[in-house]
Design a protein around this nucleic acid. Structure first.
Lengths: 129, 129
DNA sequence: AGGCTTATTGAGAACGATTGTCAATAACTG
DNA sequence: CAGTTATTGACAATCGTTCTCAATAAGCCT
């Protein structure tokens, strides 16, 4: 995990770029379709691999959709959470320092170490009422 | 959704019971296996359907596992969240009134209505260090 | 109780998302 | 520029879940 050699390929860059362009969360399949439509010959498996790499490198933000699909989003800053519209998928990044701390506290109270958490809020945004 | 006629079948009861016996979160497949091993001839599809029904009826607690599997847990009380051991799956129910409120506030601040949320904390429990 | 309607079942096929396989390609190294 | 090997892309394979459909059995009615 530390000494893996990574090469820079145009394919990975393409995925990175397409992910940056995308609004909100997108699935690997959607990205693959977009890239294809733009003339790329990139393979679906490659998109999956690139996204997994980006996620591990902290450049992408993974999220399990309700129906078991794995969605990604370009991740600019540090740790944050999301407020997501159920209808249109619009996403707002939210800071949650208070909740971060709360989560870590709860974990250590119960003797759990290396705490991580999943916090996402869903709702219907003003445009979709 | 309101006037659906539901029948009580031994199969559904069996799933309900098996779910109650289970410790922590279990997958539909695991439950199916357990039931089979206890001599039941229940079908896998039926387990899925029963679990979906229970979840909708508020009797079961659904959770997306890291690798896209859908896990369920018997849900006794009201709304609560979970602290889950990454290694052994041990689960602690946690109250999170503060966080509930926070989530609702954040949602309405951004004009989102009908807020719901996913809050789960993962860690390594004391026994699994 | 006996019959009727129709929700539910179970077995397997079908499905969709993801991962594996493997020969061909192309990034880096020296 | 040649050699090494990570990466690619096409496709098969896998895994969890849902669908299909004939058979079964719940609940209602008389």
């Amino acid at each position: 995990m530390a000494d893996l050699k990574r090469r820079n390929t145009r394919q990975k860059d393409a995925v990175r770029h397409a992910l940056g362009e995308a609004i909100g969360f997108v699935s690997a399949q959607q990205l693959h379709l977009v890239l294809k439509n733009h003339g790329s010959t990139i393979g679906l498996a490659t998109v999956y691999r690139a996204l997994a790499d980006l996620a591990e490198a902290g450049e992408a933000d993974p999220l399990q959709s309700k129906d078991g699909e794995l969605l990604y989003r370009a991740c600019t800053t540090s740790h944050h959470h999301h407020l997501i519209c159920r209808a249109c998928g619009k996403t707002v990044e939210i800071e949650a320092d208070r909740v971060e701390k709360w989560a870590d506290e709860v974990a250590s109270e119960h003797g759990f170490t290396q705490p991580s958490h999943t916090i996402d809020i869903f709702g219907t945004c003003s445009a979709c009422q």
